[in-house]
Amino acid sequence: MSAAPQKAKAGGGTIDVVVRAIVPLNDLVTRFEFERPDGAPFPPFSPGAHTIVEMNDDGRPRKNPYSLMSDPSDTSHYAISVRRDDEGRGGSRFLHTAVSVGDRLSVSYPVNLFPLDLRARKHVFLAGGIGITPFLSMIAQLERQGGRWELHYACRSESLASYADDLTGRHANKVHVYYSDRKEALPLEDLLDGQPLGTHVYVCGPKGMIDWVKTTAADHGWPGDAVHAEEFLAPQPGDPFDVHLARSGIDVHVEPHESLLEAIERAGVDAPFLCRGGACGQCETDVIEADGELIHADHWLEDDQKASGKKIMPCVSRFAGKKLVLDR
């Protein structure tokens, strides 16, 4: 409507925060609580939303997505729980080792790619490991609204079961925890059977668990739109490679421990993104030329799109070969 439309910055707005508390939960997982420097309330959010935490890791900018796990009705702070990934590229290790109470960070406005279906008569939550985090905010909201829910939570061991004691203490009849070191298995088929009409099931955990739940639910006749899943892929490190950005006219070298998207941003190119985990589709980029192999790691592109070699999701996918040219 104006002669020169304003261009939106990729990724939307950000919020400056101060780390108000760091709470180690066990050997792997630590909770980080943020407040605003001026003490102002945070924007409310819907349960299942994530935020992108921006970090400056020794000159290397990192933006990692984490589920908001605090009570959505409590706007005094945001909280995330971060599992340390020693094999990963360093974002979670940076949070665990280099961030202290009082440090300033920047987080994005909440984005929800895993919302509750508010039509559901009942919500069944299936969590695997650190996949528990989005369900904590969902449970807080449903408890307030009087919604029906139950949680089935699969963990490796009692010592690594983040929030299991707290949840079973408060909701003994609705929370069921299964420890694999005790050979306990989540009885998926049984609990999918006999749910009331209008029940929705939500799964957050490793890829294998999500596939298992989706397949089993489909086999049991569950409608596809009553089964919700969230799997954020952490970008995996890999061999370095070079890319030419045709529209910007620049060459970028992608280091082993940064993603293609991070390398593009480091070069000063404003590329779109939302989830940075291969799920939302925002960063989809056209491949102009690829003399080599595109290493697709997302779950956005269809198999035929991946096979075509014409598209890449630079937040998680990489390249091996002689020459890669992107339309960016």
Binding site: G12, G13, F45, P110, V111, L274, Q282
Partner: peptide
């Protein structure tokens, strides 16, 4: 679908 919190949009 991608209109985000904090980033409203408009048209005529």
């Amino acid at each position: 679908l991608n209109v985000q919190q904090g980033s409203p949009a408009r048209r005529l």
